[in-house]
């Protein structure tokens, strides 16, 4: 390797990259295997309605997973994504139901409030040098508390916003292509994933996020304003949580202020199963989406098979450990 001179770009696809691709491939194979398994052994699994149900169940975790993937690649962690989602849903409820504003304002309000809260987390981490785990643990409680305070601890319904269902349960695409009953919430997840993927791989923001996660000190000594990009990363994460808040509240036709706790762990699990390294510097959006699908296929499949719901939680735990172990093995081999 050391003696070869300049070759064509692309021939040097490194061992690291291939390990990453491998991890994604493994996750994808696991997903297909799970689907095949449940299709064979669970009678009502492979029905159109059930598939739509799985996708719908994936939407929120998938979007939150993408949000937290940004932060994890940058070398941080965000424990507040679940309650942040709830807070943004409550913000949408306040703007739309309590204040009677039009739908677009509600959408912008939810995303913006998430972004602002995320930026605050980022500023606390970057400027006060508080470890991300602690800062976002605090922010998790702050967002949970604010959601309860702002809503008066009661659900806010969206009955006055008849179009609110457009954000998740309804299927616009079925009107264009009859028979394809994919709910809008799922379509939004895919759109978020595609945009996030482009941002991470093609833009200066993504490049900075990878650089921060790989070696923050080297980035700083390259004259990069590390703090600014860190704050932006958490703001993006918060903004995407706002999108998750819209999807979840649209599906429930209400902002449920008590919801949200525990979602952060599922989101982190989706990212990790998809090959994102908690050490930072590595990860893909596609992997996270596959990870989120693995989790909901498991939940759904076991339920359809009549296995006690609680077992799903156990299996998810095992999958996380196995996924990380596979990652370590793949990495050692290279």
């Amino acid at each position: 390797m050391s003696d070869t001179t300049m070759g064509k770009t692309g021939t040097g696809k490194s061992a690291l990259l291939s390990a990453e691709t491998m991890q994604k491939a493994v996750a994808f194979v696991v997903l297909i295997a799970l689907i095949a398994f449940f299709s064979a052994f669970a009678a009502n699994f492979a029905t159109g309605a059930n598939m739509v149900g799985i996708m719908q169940a994936t939407a929120v975790n998938g979007v939150l997973g993408v949000a937290v993937t940004f932060v994890i690649i940058s070398g941080g962690i965000d424990l507040s994504v679940g309650t942040m989602m709830t807070l943004t849903a409550v913000m949408a409820g306040i703007i739309l139901t309590n204040m009677g504003m039009p739908l677009p304002i509600g959408i912008i309000g939810a995303i913006l409030s998430g972004a602002i809260m995320g930026a605050i987390s980022g500023a606390i981490i970057a400027k006060l040098k508080i470890p991300p785990f602690i800062a976002t643990l605090g922010m998790m409680q702050i967002a949970r508390g604010l959601a309860l305070v702002f809503s008066g601890a009661k659900p806010i319904y969206f009955n006055d916003t008849p179009n609110y269902g457009l954000l998740s349960p309804e299927s616009s695409i079925s009107k264009l292509i009859p028979g394809v009953e994919i709910p809008n919430g799922v379509m939004i997840m895919f759109i978020v994933a595609i945009i996030a993927s482009i941002v991470l791989n093609r833009t200066i923001i993504g490049r900075m996020i990878f650089a921060l996660g790989s070696n923050e000190e080297a980035a700083r000594l390259s004259g990069i304003n590390v703090d600014r990009w860190k704050i932006l990363t958490y703001a993006i994460c918060g903004g995407i949580c706002g999108i998750a808040g819209l999807i979840v509240s649209s599906r429930l036709n209400s902002a449920q202020p008590a919801l949200g706790l525990g979602y952060e762990l599922d989101a982190i699990a989706a990212a990790v199963i998809g090959g994102t390294s908690l050490a930072g510097g590595r990860g893909t959006v596609i992997g996270t989406i596959i990870g989120a699908f693995i989790m909901s296929v498991l939940t759904n499949g076991l339920r359809v098979m009549g296995v006690l719901e609680e077992w799903k939680i156990v299996v998810t735990g095992v999958i996380i450990i196995v996924a990380v172990f596979i990652d370590i093995v793949l990495r050692k081999r290279t």
Binding site: M1, S2, D3, T4, M6, T9, G12, S14, A15
Partner: peptide, 11 residues
């Protein structure tokens, strides 16, 4: 000396 500019620097 590198096979390409997309080579990971660690190598």
């Amino acid at each position: 000396k590198t096979p390409s500019v997309s080579q990971i620097t660690r190598l």
